[in-house]
Nucleic acid binder design. Sequence first.
DNA 1: CACGTGTCACATGTTCCATGTGACACGTGC
DNA 2: GCACGTGTCACATGGAACATGTGACACGTG
Lengths: 132, 132
Amino acid sequence: MMLPFPLQIQPGLPISEQLVYAVKKAVISGLLKPGSRFPSVRAVSQELRIHPNTAHKAVGVLIGEGLLEVHPGIGTVVGKIPPAPSARELKLFATEVERLVVEAKNRRLHLDELQAMVERQWNRLTKSPTQL
Amino acid sequence: MMLPFPLQIQPGLPISEQLVYAVKKAVISGLLKPGSRFPSVRAVSQELRIHPNTAHKAVGVLIGEGLLEVHPGIGTVVGKIPPAPSARELKLFATEVERLVVEAKNRRLHLDELQAMVERQWNRLTKSPTQL
DNA sequence: CACGTGTCACATGTTCCATGTGACACGTGC
DNA sequence: GCACGTGTCACATGGAACATGTGACACGTG
């Protein structure tokens, strides 16, 4: 049984965070479609050779962000309702933007170069859900 | 004695990382000018009420990235030579760009909205080094 | 009722972080 | 030469986060 999203666990970052990010990427690129079935916690843990609790932790984060929906006793599906970005969330996101800009300036990039990289990643995550 | 850059230590992130980021931000915004004196490890630790080893860890990272230069027995100064971004570094940076784009799409932002936020942060870090 | 699902409560070992303590090499200034 | 401040390092310690281990419960389906 294969997972409906690609993920290669690597050392250096927490496993649960890697799992969260992989699912996010799969959802926004259309690989995981809203309403479709999401693998059970135990299935994910078996496929990735990780502990069920670790997988459950990641799922809990995704639930909290509205990307997944839980139906107790049934299972988990990809969320249909897009989470509305609140003002607080936008402020936190602005902090992340600042972080990237700082790193860009530190690497002596120009604004148009950074914008080009942003646009490239944007299109890459939009048009080709197969090459993640 | 005041530090030549602003920093308010906050819980949640490693102190050394916060220090690294604060220095990066101060350097690219012109608050810390190339060739100028950088406070000693012990001075930084006393000002921020952190352990010298923690401050030293942050300085070590900044040395490795070329933002600071060490003159053994003398002290540390802000680096004059801008680090040339290698191909490997650019690839790693592209990963960070992807991360931000994923978060942006997850928040249902549009490309032009993200571009606008990037440009805003870019200009903010360029023109007003006082309000960091 | 059995089964798979999500969920939770512990405990354990590992790793990272920050701090503690002490020490050494280097260059400057007296 | 000497004291001083500088960067640097090697341990050890306590705390937090992470991943795993183990067991258990509630829910809906068949």
